[in-house]
Simulated assay, not measured.
Amino acid sequence: MKKNEAYHDLFQNLQENGMSFDQVFDRIVTFMKLDPNGNYRLMVGTDSQVHKSTTVFITGLVIQNKGNGVWACIKKVVIPRKMTHLHERISLELSLTEEVVSMFTEERKNELINLVLPNIYQGATFTMEGHIDIGAGKRNKTSEFVKEMVTRIESMGVEPKIKPNAFVASSYANRYTK
């Protein structure tokens, strides 16, 4: 670990702990190189859980080759207080998602696109999505925030997904917030 690299900047999954973003990016490239004809979705989403004296945020990062497996990892951030205001929590969830999305610089995105580019006529695809743990349903407490949060993700050049299609936030990341 580099001296200036804070612990919260590290990623982990069931196989590895303490991965830097460079290592995560290398894993994604390696995964995509296994099948250059694949249909890839790079998805980032965050969920949170309020505990007794902390609020735990988990950002999930998933590269999926539709029908041919996934590689995934998480980044955990613990805020040392109960965050009871929904808008504050949803906004921080999105900020943490944006932080990870922003690590995919133009150069890095182009590197991933260039892995599938020679194979697009064989059906290869690559998309990048921001999964937001909110729903637009009338009874959903987060519905009033949908427009604001979707606009934030779109402004980063990433396709927004909300519930029920935001499974990286609402399902994968959620599992690790408990």
Rank of each mutant, 00 (worst) to 15 (best):
V77G: 03
V77E: 12
V78M: 10
I79V: 15
I79C: 08
I79W: 06
P80H: 08
P80Y: 06
K82H: 12
K82Q: 15
K82C: 15
K82I: 13
M83Y: 00
M83A: 01
T84Y: 12
H85L: 13
H85K: 15
H85C: 10
L86E: 10
L86V: 07
H87K: 13
H87V: 07
H87C: 03
E88M: 10
R89K: 12
R89W: 03
R89M: 06
I90P: 01
I90W: 04
I90D: 02
I90F: 08
I90T: 11
S91Y: 14
L92K: 13
E93K: 03
E93G: 01
L94Y: 11
L94A: 12
S95Q: 15
S95K: 15
L96V: 06
L96D: 04
T97W: 04
T97R: 03
T97D: 02
E98F: 07
E98T: 13
E98H: 09
E98I: 14
E99K: 14
E99Q: 14
V101K: 03
S102W: 03
S102L: 14
S102G: 10
M103L: 15
M103Y: 09
M103A: 08
M103D: 04
F104G: 02
F104A: 02
F104R: 02
F104P: 02
T105E: 05
T105W: 04
E107N: 02
E107L: 03
E107F: 01
E107R: 04
E107P: 00
E107Y: 01
R108K: 12
R108M: 01
R108W: 02
K109E: 06
N110E: 09
N110P: 00
N110R: 07
N110F: 00
N110A: 03
E111I: 01
E111N: 04
E111D: 02
I113P: 00
I113L: 05
N114Y: 05
L115M: 05
L115T: 03
L115Q: 03
L115A: 01
V116W: 00
L117D: 11
L117Y: 11
L117R: 14
L117C: 04
P118W: 06
P118V: 05
P118E: 07
P118M: 08
P118T: 06
N119C: 12
N119Q: 13
N119Y: 15
N119K: 14
N119W: 11
I120S: 08
I120F: 10
Y121G: 05
Y121E: 14
Y121A: 13
Y121C: 06
Q122H: 14
Q122T: 12
Q122C: 10
A124W: 05
A124H: 06
T125W: 01
F126T: 07
F126W: 09
T127L: 12
T127M: 12
T127R: 14
T127E: 15
M128C: 10
M128V: 09
M128R: 08
M128D: 06
M128A: 05
M128L: 13
E129V: 03
E129S: 10
E129Q: 15
H131C: 08
H131I: 07
H131A: 08
H131M: 09
H131W: 07
I132Q: 04
I132T: 06
D133R: 08
D133C: 08
D133H: 07
I134Y: 00
I134W: 01
I134K: 02
G135D: 09
G135L: 09
G135A: 09
A136M: 06
A136N: 11
A136L: 01
